[in-house]
Design a binder for these strands. Structure first.
Length: 272
DNA sequence: GGCCAGGCTTGTC
DNA sequence: GACAAGCCTGGC
């Protein structure tokens, strides 16, 4: 069990920001997270965070996963003071961090995300994990499932994942699993590429377009230059930035700004 | 070659 | 009926 005081970190905001679909609220302060074959519980009260794991696992994995070595205050301070909308959005989502998630998990998750909502995306992912992942037990003896490997889905008929409610996206996931399992696309190479190269390579995968490639680059490769434009972001940009979003000003942290806007558009309006 | 309309699963509002 | 972290295909 590790206790830390962390600024700019809010597990609830990270959970609701729609970058991770395997994070679950257990009670008012506690969340459980599954990443690859690992499981973690996190509790938070203000700046105080408790990570229920051993110190070496925290240092070697979860610290990087939650991006705790990155200074988000610096990004927020770089925001144009005249830009009231972005200032408000960044204050509203001040506890958001860009997670370092697994590349393969993000490819599949954002293939499923298209023309879909976050609740249903979560359900689809739970379904494929239960059906094609491996069963594990957490420290409390509760069962959870690992994320299915490319190999475990590569041999399926293209329609097989419709059973998991993926709909027409089933063939995207199966064909992509095949491309990766066959070595046609090398994930390790993509991990070492620049943003531009990685995006281009990812877009060779069946079902991966510009928006999905940007999400993968941002949430698993830590390319902060990626700025995924979906319907919500499109609306915000049309409404608040008719001249276009000032990408040049935010060079190197465009993706962080995108997350502030996305979260504000999705959650800010509910609360008012 | 680029551009654009239409189609695609399914659940929720 | 419209829409949800869109993409592919075919026709021009």
């Amino acid at each position: 069990m590790i206790t830390k005081t962390i600024k700019c970190f809010d597990i609830a905001q990270i959970c609701d920001s729609g970058q991770c679909f395997r994070m679950l609220k257990k009670d008012a302060q506690t969340y459980s997270v599954i990443a690859g074959d690992r499981h973690l519980e996190v509790a938070q009260k203000g700046d105080q965070c408790i990570f229920y794991c051993e110190e070496d696992e925290f240092e070697s994995f979860w610290k990087g996963y939650f991006d705790l070595d990155t200074d988000y205050i610096k990004y927020r301070e770089s925001i144009d003071q005249q830009d009231k909308y972005l200032k408000e959005a960044s204050e509203f989502g001040s506890g958001i961090r860009i997670l370092n998630q697994d590349l393969w998990e993000m490819i599949v998750s954002f293939l499923i995300s298209q023309q879909n909502n976050i609740i249903r995306i979560r359900r689809c992912i739970d379904n494929i994990c239960e059906k094609y992942g491996e069963e594990r037990k957490d420290a409390n003896g509760h069962i959870y499932y690992t994320f299915p490997t490319p190999k475990s889905m590569a041999c399926l008929p293209e329609d097989a994942l419709k059973e998991c409610n993926l709909g027409y996206r089933s063939k995207y996931v199966v064909r992509t699993a095949k491309s990766v399992a066959d070595g046609e696309i090398d994930l390790d190479e993509i991990r070492h590429m620049s943003y531009g190269q990685a995006k281009e390579e990812l877009m060779k995968l069946y079902g991966v377009g510009e928006k999905v490639a940007d999400c993968i680059c941002l949430f698993s490769l830590h390319h902060f230059e990626a700025f995924p434009v979906d319907t919500h972001i499109r609306q915000a940009l049309d409404g608040y930035y008719p001249e276009g979003f000032p990408m040049d000003r935010y060079k190197g942290c465009e993706g962080v700004m995108q997350q502030y806007i996305f979260y504000y558009e999705l959650m800010g309006k509910k609360i008012g």
